[in-house]
Design a protein around this nucleic acid. Sequence first.
DNA 1: AGCCGTCTCTGGTCTGGACCAAATATCTAG
DNA 2: CTAGATATTTGGTCCAGACCAGAGACGGCT
Lengths: 245, 245
Amino acid sequence: MASNAPASRSDGLHYLSLRDAIAARITAGDLKPGDKLPSERRLQEDLGVARGTVREGLFQLEAEGVIYRRDRSGWYVSPPPVVYDPTRWEGFMSYVEAQGRIPATETIAANEVAADPLLADVFSRPPGAPLYVIRRRRYVDGRAVLVERLVVDAALAPDLLRFSFDQSLTSILKTEYGITVARNQVSMQPCALTGFEAEALRVKSGLPGLAVQRRSYDAQGRVVEYDHEHWRHDSVRISVDTRVR
Amino acid sequence: MASNAPASRSDGLHYLSLRDAIAARITAGDLKPGDKLPSERRLQEDLGVARGTVREGLFQLEAEGVIYRRDRSGWYVSPPPVVYDPTRWEGFMSYVEAQGRIPATETIAANEVAADPLLADVFSRPPGAPLYVIRRRRYVDGRAVLVERLVVDAALAPDLLRFSFDQSLTSILKTEYGITVARNQVSMQPCALTGFEAEALRVKSGLPGLAVQRRSYDAQGRVVEYDHEHWRHDSVRISVDTRVR
DNA sequence: AGCCGTCTCTGGTCTGGACCAAATATCTAG
DNA sequence: CTAGATATTTGGTCCAGACCAGAGACGGCT
């Protein structure tokens, strides 16, 4: 036998020892963002613990955002998060690039729908009024980090669907329709990525996430954009700067 | 045997079936916020699956914020989250009460410390300058939902420690020192509650949380409060309203 | 070079144990 | 009735297996 001494931690929990061991390799620079960790069965042998215990330790690091998994491929060291200010009228492509990362956008669907009572209320329009619903998936450095559902009032942006949404919607609304935003109402809540979101981001159901909801109003107080974003928990940091009212 | 038919779900995963079964009981009102779930071993028998599978299903619901655990006591249905606007200069006691919930605050520690280089930079003061550091735990309806570390410049609020911090710090700074806030710089990030925070909130290490950092400035641009909050993920929804700059 | 199978490796799910420590309920003595 | 000791229940940790499905590598065919 070779090395066989788990529980090198004060509290003596094996999975936290494994957590510490891997965390140490990462902070030491032995493992860098994007690097692949040894397989679970490899760690199991190396550390002399059961696979379930190995996974428990990996789950800890995943919860902390230190590592992430690619389904049935392996565990990888997480890249740093991007900083996002949802109150700014600045596009994803723009601020991600400004942080030295490579943004990408993929349009999953773009449809015209009739407003249901809920959406009608948000847009202060009668039920049945035409709206555009756009679903997109966004990437940073090739990794899917969020899915979003955008709703725009068709009356404010007629024939919006003729544009490509793989670029910035911000600039389309501004350049093509002269729409500018005067006020943002943003709400955020920790969530779990499940069902559709989990599939779209190719993560295991239950991974922590951050749900961001934004209503953008123009100077006349009309809702020009109603947005729901679901971010991976390890990929985003929100930053907001405000004068006190 | 009695009921014995797991995997009633389209994807046929036992733990998701269990998730759905319990979620259904909650949405149906059969289980209400604060109610205790049957024990893991009870569910194991009722549903005819291994205990590990039961736990996997419970973890799903925990990640979604639907249920929570009290260590070695049991699983309980979560109450709704409180809504919090960190850009407002309004105290915890005030906005929690306004939402029909019962707030409580417990001061864990209150000390005067010498500014380390990091804090000195934040407060634009020389290293070693006196600062007050306050640690508090906050409750909603008797459940600990966040721990925070507050830092205040001793030069701006001399002899601050003679006050009790079980009430609102907001009103102390305003009433006793005439300090008002003109600007807030807030950043938020999904995190895992580990180590100190997990112990303080009595949650299992690795539970998802939300880390909120706030710098409050007065009209002269001085930092009057530097705050780090760690919230349970299932207890908070952030809401921010801003005019676009 | 490029396509398409096959084969291996990886994490995902599940079983059925076991023992522990903290929380809780219960009982008992004062 | 109360306080303290005791027994039970509960989740927390860990083990050693098993099988599956998707990802990725490899090799052969066109």
